[in-house]
Amino acid sequence: MSLILNKAQAEAVYSAMCALEKAGVTRFSGVIPGKDADGSSHYIEIVRMCRGDVVIEKTASVLDMREHYADPSAFAIVYGLS
């Protein structure tokens, strides 16, 4: 399975989710801009919805990808985070 985020990005996103949750923030979004191997631009949007879902979308010129997790714990399991 090809995941959108690399390990370092996943760790940073999960850490931010945990910190925001401790502060009582349950809804947020963020964007990570980047370039693909072929030099084309893309952006990755991370959204945490009020019901707890975590959605990660990569929008690129060639291929769009989407991951949807029931909650941050499910996100952590798929990315191998503790």
Rank of each mutant, 00 (worst) to 15 (best):
S61P: 01
T59G: 05
E67V: 02
T26Y: 13
Y14T: 00
A76Y: 05
Y43P: 00
P72N: 03
E57F: 08
M17V: 06
C50W: 11
E57T: 15
I77N: 05
S15P: 00
I46K: 05
D71T: 03
D64I: 08
G30M: 13
D36M: 14
S41E: 12
F75Y: 06
Y69P: 04
D64P: 01
Q9K: 03
A37M: 07
G24I: 01
D36A: 15
S2R: 14
K22S: 13
A60L: 01
V55H: 05
E11I: 00
E11N: 09
A70M: 10
A10E: 10
F28R: 13
V54F: 01
F28P: 00
S73L: 13
V13T: 07
Y69M: 06
N6D: 15
S15L: 09
E45R: 15
R27I: 06
T59F: 07
D71H: 11
V55I: 15
L81F: 02
V47I: 06
K22Q: 15
G80T: 06
A23Q: 14
A74T: 11
S15Y: 04
G30A: 12
G39W: 06
G39Q: 07
A76P: 02
I32G: 02
C18E: 15
S15T: 15
M17Q: 07
Y79T: 03
G52Q: 05
H42E: 09
S61T: 06
I77R: 13
G30I: 10
Y43Q: 13
R27A: 13
S29D: 14
L20E: 09
D64R: 07
L3G: 03
D71S: 11
G24W: 06
S40E: 12
G24T: 02
A23Y: 10
G80S: 02
R48Q: 15
V62R: 08
S73Q: 10
M49E: 12
T59P: 00
M65C: 09
H68G: 03
F75W: 04
F75S: 04
S15A: 14
L3A: 07
